[in-house]
Design a protein around this nucleic acid. Sequence first.
DNA 1: CTGCACGCCTGCCCGC
DNA 2: TGCGGGCAGGCGTGCA
Length: 287
Amino acid sequence: MPELPEVETVRRGLDPVMTGQRIEVAEVRRPDLRWPFPKSMAARLMGAQVTALRRRSKYILADLGTGETLIIHLGMSGRMLIDPGDGARAPGSFHHAAETPGKHDHVILDMSGGTRITFNDARRFGAMDLHPTATLDDHWLLSKLGPEPLGNVFSAPYLMGRFKDRHTPVKSALLDQRIVAGLGNIYVSEALWRAKIHPRRLAGKISAQRIATLVPAIRDVLTEAITAGGSSLRDYRQADGELGYFQHSFAVYDRADQPCRHPGCTGTILRIVQSGRSTFHCNMCQR
DNA sequence: CTGCACGCCTGCCCGC
DNA sequence: TGCGGGCAGGCGTGCA
C-alpha cells in the first residue's frame, strides 16, 4: 500500500505522539521481517527521546537523542497503529483483552505521553533499522535513492538527463528509486495519465516539452494525495488508530474497463502488465 | 552497465 | 463451505 503520500500521512500522524517524547518501553515481538532487526534494537530504543520525525522517500526516520536514527519501512502491508491509551495502563502491560497484541504486531512502542504505537505487518516486507544520524545518508537503503519528487532537485532538466539513452519504458524508469524516490505502482500510473504519456513509451524518447509536463504531473498527484491523507488524519480514531489508510479515488489505478476521465476523451482504461506489474492507462489520450 | 524475472510473506477474492 | 489459483501498493538479487 504505502507510497510516498501514504508514508507522509503516517509520518504526520505519528509526529504529535512521538516527537519530543521518550520511548518508555520498546518490545520486539518478532524480529524476522524483510531483514532481521539489529541486535539489541529494543534495548537501544528503550528510554530514547525522539527529537524529530522525518521522511525520506518511503522511509520514516525517527531521530533519537542517543545519536541514532530509527529507520522504518512499511513494505507492502506495514501499518502503524496508534492507541492513545486511557491514562491508566502501565507501559508495557497488556491488561485488557483489547490490547492483546495481534499475530502481526511486530514492534510495540510505549511513549512517555501514554500513546502505544504498534508496527503491524502481515506480509513482513517491512523493515526497521538503526543507524547513526550523522551518517544516515550512507545507510545502504538510503544511499542510492534519487531526489525527492517534491524537492527542488527534481526538475524537468534533471529528469531529462536521467531519461537520456534509457531504453526502458517510462513506467519502469519512474519506478526506479535511483531516478526519483518515492513513487510506486499506483502513482506512476496516475502521473503518466495526467501527463498523457503512454506507459510503454521509452524513457529516452520523451521530448523535453513532455517531460516538462510530466514533472508537475508527478508533483501534483503526490501533493493532492498528501492533502487527502491529511484530511483523513483528523478522524483516524474512527479507523481504530490505523494511520494513512484513507479512501482515495484514483483516475486510472484499478479502473480497468471504466471510462477515461479526461474531459472530451471517449477512451476506456486498460490494464497491461509491465515487468510483472499492473499498469493502468488510457490508450486514447496517452501517447 | 542495463533491463527484467524472481523471491520474499500472508491475506483476500474469485471460480469451481 | 472448502480449496486452489491468482493477485496485491516494495525492494534486492541474480541472470542474460
